[in-house]
Amino acid sequence: MSAREDGLIAADAVRATPDTRAVAAGKAMRWRSRQAVNFWLKWVMVVLAYVFLHAPLIVVIGASFNGGGEYAAIEFPPASPSIEWYFEIPMQQFEALGLSFALASLASLSAVIIGVPAALGLVRSNLPGKTLIGVVFRSPLQIPAVVSGIAFLQMYYLVGDATGFFAQGSFIGLAIGHIFIAIPYVVGTVVAVLQRFDHRLEEAALSLGASPWRTFRRVTLPVIMPGVYAGALYAFMVSFGDVPLSIFLTAPGYVTYPVELFSALENDFDPSILASGTLVILFCLVVMIVVQRVVGLDALLKIGGTGKGR
């Protein structure tokens, strides 16, 4: 019921006889009870959504505290509570975690450096074949990552044959693949912001004597920053969690965290994986809280927001 309808009911109540007043009061009560039902329905939906999204994490965290020795299975709630698996996490998993963080940071930074100018060009230029270029930038989303992985591996061998530099099995080789899958996320979010950009802001800056570079730095960039941050965050997450592409590009010494876990789980179940997974979840949570308190993540990610944070 709209505010206008609400007002009409109230006006009716003022004009009406005792009978019609009772009817109006009944209507108002029904409206209020409908509002209450809507309110609780929304809450239930939100709680259910949160439970659905977080239940797997809760199970992983809970089961990581299940002891049971060498032959433990996943048990939630834990049957024999223990923290033994936190002391059994293999060093390779920590090394892989370090590599994954470095790789995802590089991939998201590079995706921003490539993706922001690309988005500006796609929205503002009059390049012939702009649509086709846009499709090329989005193509990593449409190609299955497994196919990309095989294609990259083949390409590295071809380039290696021609130049003598073989990128497969190196950090550079991995990074190129991850940047490839990360770029569409930055391009997508920045294009979305730019399409709603108010050009009068730039025109005002230019007409007041600011140089094009200063206008970009002081006017355009702050406005598109929420899109850049959102894209960079998605790029980081996609790179950090990737298995299908990385599995073809990893080599001894350059194994990413998800590939390390996937390889371990393919042949066996090792409960220490739950423990290391829990540590990563907690670490991400702490990072998010710190970012939220220091920078103001919700303001940054709000497309069209000020981008200044708190």
């Binding site: 293999p90 001894p252 390889s263 371990a264 393919e266 066996d268 090792d270």
Partner: peptide
């Protein structure tokens, strides 16, 4: 020597 095999307990 590089060995292509499963990870986890097999590698261990």
């Amino acid at each position: 020597l590089r060995i292509a095999t499963w990870g986890g307990s097999n590698k261990a």
